[in-house]
Write a protein that binds this DNA or RNA. Sequence first.
DNA 1: GCCTCCCATGCGAAGAGCCT
DNA 2: AGGCTCTTCGCATGGGAGGC
Length: 338
Amino acid sequence: MKDLTNSTVSRQNILNNNYAIEEIQNAVGIEGIVFENQFRFLKNQIAAFFEIDERTVERYLEIHEKELKVNGYEVLKGKRLKEFKLLIKDLEVTDINVAQSTANLGLFNFRAFLNLGMLLTESEKAKTLRGVVLDIVLDTINKRTGGSTKYINQRDGDFILSYYKEESYRKEFTDALCNYIAMGNAKYAIYTNKIYQSIFKEHAVEYRQILKLSEKDKVRETMYSEVLDLISSYEFGLAKLIEERYNKLGRKLTSLEIDNLFSAFEQLPLWVPLIEKARRKMASRDLAFRDVLHQQLEGYIGAVPAEDFERFIGEKSKELAERLEEAKDVFKRLKKRE
DNA sequence: GCCTCCCATGCGAAGAGCCT
DNA sequence: AGGCTCTTCGCATGGGAGGC
């Protein structure tokens, strides 16, 4: 993982990982005032923890206002401030004195506190915190995936269906290549790679290298359901186009003809948003979960949203074996009904 | 080795709005 | 209305980096 202080994406990938945040909170052990079900910290508490001046906190709030607000910093006023003041009065906290007369009050929650810790370059304590945070993040992902992230894509509930569907579309595609294209056996690899390159700019060998896959690993078993779905669309669409052209010509297509067909097909504007989405998901997730950088897709890297952490390492994500077992049961039940 | 420039830091004033 | 205490921002300071 990159240096947190200058990588927005890396910071957000940690802050969006609720599982890691929970562990970090336990490890850091800093306790604020519980307000609206969250720990809250005042500016002076934050400054004291990081051993910096309050004015420094303000500077960071100025420069990174948007990021810190997204992650939970807010300025209370009006009704909610009144409630907060009441809460403090009730708690009789001695080390915190918020004047009853104050008109607005800045509050950090734990995520915003952590966010600031990732930005601060002048605090030794923040530096130490970053080290701890990175360790915990790696540890959480490893713990939840059982050590390897090679098949983390399969932990998503949509994977199995996409994978099975894709197999049948692939069959259509290879059949079309077999029956309607006048080329040697190299055609299967050539046009499969063309599809990969059209979708994510890498051919199978590059993809294998980048993900450090071994000979016996199947590339498609490592792909995210969104990418598989797109490959399915390509394969099925192309299969039908090839068949149509074959029927029209009344003979097998030459390699030049299928190349022309392919480039017209991949340039259809309908692909643009779908490809954009697949690239974004693949590049961002592989960086966050597999610590893998697809250089060709660098421009598509963004922060992985919290829902994705739920999907891939959350309670609902499961090992493929478990899913297969479940799928088997479903098949059995269906059979009984017949 | 000295000078200059830049930036982080911290002081303090202005502005805001709630409390009594 | 005046007091109070917060946020925000301008500005002075000082230290460090880099140029000559």
